[in-house]
């Protein structure tokens, strides 16, 4: 990367070669249990920065639980979560968010009685520490917030409904708003939990385009039941069942994997 020919430059280069960039997300021997049920059971994997990884698996496989562990919504009973090499296992949700992690929720989680505009303003404000603490000046009059918020809404086709309450939006628009809020914080890691669930085929197609158009440097983890979407979007597919990772590999590999077909793909095809 560096064109510098100075000694110090070369030394830095060789140092960084010895210690490669840490993965964006790394989980190590992660477990959590609900009662007797191990929803995530001794799971270990790394996601390199910039990778797009689809996580697939049958209902109850532990996919959402895994996201909750990475996001901080749940604490593991054992194991470690690292974001860009930093151990965040004991950090709270908002601290992980400030470290560059954003997510959407499987069950739509928005500020329902507020307008679309207010939702996005707050999401943009969240990334500016001085703005977050401002208790004079109207939020809707801060150019540093309204500018990016307007741009996001225009980009994602929600500009015309910005004055509507979120509760008045169509379900598909709410799902898009979930992604918009997550992106508003300009995250480095984005977790999408079934972004196409509950959408019509047409809407799901648009959502896939939307996901495909996300910036390349963004590390993306996407839980997806729709195989076409998962295989189209992902560099790597990770298959989970009963709290463990069954297989991880390129989409083409996973499609040929017998164990995966037996555990998951067969079943899913059956009820599709």
């Amino acid at each position: 990367m560096s064109a510098s020919s100075s000694d110090s430059g070369r030394r830095r280069d060789s140092a960084s070669r010895k210690a490669p960039a840490p993965p964006a997300v790394a989980v190590e021997r992660l477990s959590v249990a609900f009662g007797g049920l191990r929803a995530v059971d001794d799971v270990t994997f790394d996601v390199p920065a910039g990778q797009r990884r689809a996580i697939i698996g049958p209902n109850g496989a532990g996919k959402t639980t895994l996201f909750n562990l990475i996001g901080g919504q749940l604490r593991p009973i054992t194991g470690v979560v690292r974001l860009f090499g930093d151990d965040v296992t004991h950090r709270r949700v908002h601290q992980r968010a400030r470290a560059g992690l954003a997510r959407t929720f499987q069950i739509t989680n928005l500020l329902t009685e507020l307008s679309v505009w207010d939702n996005v303003l707050l999401a943009v404000a969240a990334r500016h520490a001085p703005v977050r603490r401002l208790f004079w000046n109207a939020l809707s009059r801060l150019d540093s917030v309204t500018g990016p918020a307007a741009e996001l809404l225009r980009t994602w086709g929600l500009w015309t409904v910005r004055d509507h309450r979120v509760s008045e939006l169509a379900y598909g628009q709410q799902r898009v708003l979930e992604i918009v809020l997550a992106l508003a914080a300009q995250p480095r890691i984005l977790l999408l939990d079934e972004p196409t669930a509950g959408l019509s085929k047409e809407e799901a197609g648009r959502m896939t385009e939307v996901a495909a158009a996300l910036p390349g440097e963004l590390t993306l983890l996407i839980i997806e039941h729709d195989m076409e979407v998962a295989f189209a979007l992902a560099d790597v597919v990770q298959v989970m069942a009963e709290g463990v990772v069954l297989a991880t590999g390129a989409p083409a590999e996973i499609q040929r994997n017998d164990e995966v077909i037996a555990a998951y793909l067969g079943g899913a095809r059956g009820d599709a």
Binding site: Q73, F105, L111, T112, L181, A185
Partner: peptide, 14 residues
């Protein structure tokens, strides 16, 4: 916002 959804607000970084 925290009235509407504390979990969403936390996930945004509040």
């Amino acid at each position: 916002g925290t009235r509407e959804s504390p979990t969403r607000m936390a996930a945004l970084g509040f």
